[in-house]
């Protein structure tokens, strides 16, 4: 008698994993001498490219494309920063301090402070610690990212029922995954979902931080990034 073959990861999570884009690298300007401003410019350029990829990734979340265009825009306008930050958190899990924005852009606390990103550093390190303690898997991380987008409390939702169905589909996928993969941890789904308020708080701080940097004309920002920042104000 052989153990039943482990249930194939549910379709939603395997779809999320298969549409995971390859991590981007930072593109620091080789000519500009290293400085806090250069760090910020490199980071804003990277985040704008991440944003482009994330918008395209969102279209591949099971259920997202069945939403109206208005609702797709609404969820992205309200949840984009949370989704971006979860990518940073996931990449930073291997490190005991600092934030890994890209393989070639790792900022420790003093660097974040000097670049004016300390208000972002603190809550994100708290979130990273939580996920390290939970030993979060890649499947859980990509599902949480999709849920953060689906659950982003957009103001102008056109069809609430279809957004609810979108959320339920992701919730079911996470529950199905935990039942199959972590059956012994009966509170795991709840523990993962209870990290989302901190993600929301981190997202608001990040938006305020980049908005302040923009208003002070400290760093040039791409039009898409500014357009999305503007929606969060």
């Amino acid at each position: 008698y052989t153990h039943p073959v482990k249930s194939i990861r549910n379709k939603v999570i395997s779809q999320l994993l298969s549409s995971e884009p390859a991590p981007l690298r930072a593109s620091p300007d080789p000519v500009t001498p290293d400085s806090d401003l250069k760090t910020l410019m490199t980071l804003c350029d990277l985040l704008n490219r991440e944003l482009l990829v994330m918008i395209s990734w969102a279209k591949h979340i099971p259920g997202f494309s069945s939403l109206s265009l208005v609702d797709q825009m609404a969820l992205l306008q309200s949840g984009w920063m949370e989704a971006l930050l979860l990518c940073v958190v996931w990449r930073s899990l291997a490190s005991t301090q600092g934030l890994e924005f890209a393989e070639n852009l790792h900022l420790n606390e003093p660097q974040c402070k000097n670049a004016g990103l300390l208000e972002l550093y603190t809550p994100l390190r708290l979130l990273i610690d939580k996920y390290q303690q939970l030993n979060i898997s890649h499947e859980e991380a990509v599902t949480l990212r999709a849920m953060a987008l689906a659950n982003s409390d957009a103001e102008h939702v056109e069809n609430g029922d279809s957004v609810l169905r979108f959320q339920d589909g992701l919730h079911e996928a996470l529950q199905d995954y935990e039942v199959n993969e972590r059956a012994a941890e009966t509170h795991r789904v709840g523990r993962l979902l209870m990290t989302l308020p901190l993600l929301r708080q981190s997202s608001h701080r990040a938006v305020q931080c980049f908005r302040r940097l923009h208003i002070q004309h400290l760093v040039p920002m791409h039009k898409l990034f500014l357009e999305m920042l503007d929606t969060k104000i």
């Binding site: 884009p21 395209s56 279209k59 797709q72 825009m73 357009e227 999305m228």
Partner: peptide
């Protein structure tokens, strides 16, 4: 939609994240 024309355009084109 006018205010968020870049997002609007991105949602309508069909680039895959892997390509991007």
């Amino acid at each position: 939609k006018e205010k968020h024309k870049i997002l609007h355009r991105l949602l309508q084109n069909s680039t895959s994240p892997v390509d991007l």
